[in-house]
Design a protein around this nucleic acid. Structure first.
Lengths: 209, 209
DNA sequence: GATAATTTCAAACAAATGTTTAATTTTGTT
DNA sequence: AACAAAATTAAACATTTGTTTGAAATTATC
């Protein structure tokens, strides 16, 4: 399906609502209202609510895998540099696309849409495989230690980052960052998260510097 | 509200359904069927679907905070021992109560029930405060390094553990653990998660041994 | 500018949802 | 055994839900 500007606008508004109310909680009427279009337009443009969700996942997930693949295969970086880039880019992406990552998280728990589940599955396994290649390269160069569990490594990153994003407001409150505006706070979070995950990765992968 | 065995039985079945379909996705009819009671019994026993959810949270969350408080105040353990116990008990609890932790995760994202949100908030903040006390004790003894961000520390633990539990099946598949039965696999996960989080905590808190 | 294709709309539709009702059965008490 | 309280039930209720319809408005094509 080719997406027009109208498609993308509806997807954006649907995304915001799904992130706050969940797939079942956000009604088609809510989405139509938020997008400023008639109720019937959702079915007209996407076929159904389910297919709208599928379109959203297809749209948001398209670029994810490709980027990682080019990074892993890039010969201009050392394994350590690649790990740092991987972390930076992941943290950036989650902070930039908070709504979608919240939806992804819920969809991993709630078993709603088979097609969405399949896409998540493929993304996860290909991520594990690609990062596995990176780890092995680092191990061959004696930079990373032996016996790295790729899934533990990845889930530590994804879990820490999503958890911090979900609990953003508590973090803000706990550290008295109330005076910061949303953009500045996101920037602070981005910097701290990158540094933190990098520290954790050093411990798991077993390298210094 | 005093909970009878019947109450608890319905809560258990509701918990299983909420974990798989979400609050909005699990219908009162589904829950009644799963519990083997008449549809009207849900309202009769709990008042409403929302109140059933609140009762579930009240029931499951009651013991959480108290346990941590006694651990932190216990003088028989060193800070490092307390950290290890904290991790072990958290991992055990999540693996033992996977359904409820999945529900908690979704409720943190989806803003459904104000009372549930309030309970989550209180749990999170009191957890942060109590662990903060533990960290400071360790810092005073020069065991932990300075400038520990308690929320980053906690979210690394909760994020990693929940992420591993959510992606259990992928992990099983990726590592060819298909032959293991559910109980054995949970045990394996428990052991590996404990060791992994302890390693990560050592790096964050900055101690050896 | 006439015609066709596309987009938009209000209304209607059937199905599903949480909750209530009022009658019936079961349980407890004396 | 007789009565009262509690538990259970099938049916009904009013909303809300996703989706469709058929007419109207808009845009594109010749």
């Amino acid at each position: 399906m080719v997406l027009t500007e109208k498609h993308r606008h509806i997807l954006l508004k649907a995304e915001e609502l799904f992130a706050v109310r969940g797939f079942d909680g956000a009604t088609v009427r809510d989405i139509a209202d938020a997008a400023g279009v008639n109720l019937a337009m959702i079915s007209y443009y996407f076929g159904s609510k389910e297919k709208l969700m599928e379109a959203l996942f297809r749209e948001r997930m398209t670029l994810m895998r490709i980027r990682l693949e080019t990074l892993i295969m890039d010969d201009n970086y050392t394994p350590i540099q690649k790990v740092d880039i991987l972390i930076d880019e992941y943290v950036n992406k989650v902070i930039q696309q908070q709504s979608f990552y919240k939806i992804m998280l819920c969809e991993q728990v709630i078993n709603n849409n088979p097609l969405v589940l399949k896409m998540l599955r493929e993304l996860k396994l290909s991520y594990a495989n690609l990062v596995g290649v990176l780890i092995e390269a680092g191990q061959k160069q004696k930079i990373f230690k032996k016996d790295i569990d790729v899934m533990f490594l990845l889930n530590t990153m994804t879990g820490t980052v999503t958890q911090m994003v979900i609990n953003k407001e508590y973090y803000k409150e706990y550290n008295n960052y109330k005076k910061l505006n949303a953009a500045d706070f996101n920037e602070l979070l981005r910097t701290k998260l990158s540094a933190h995950v990098k520290l954790v990765f050093k411990a798991i992968l077993g390298y210094e510097q």
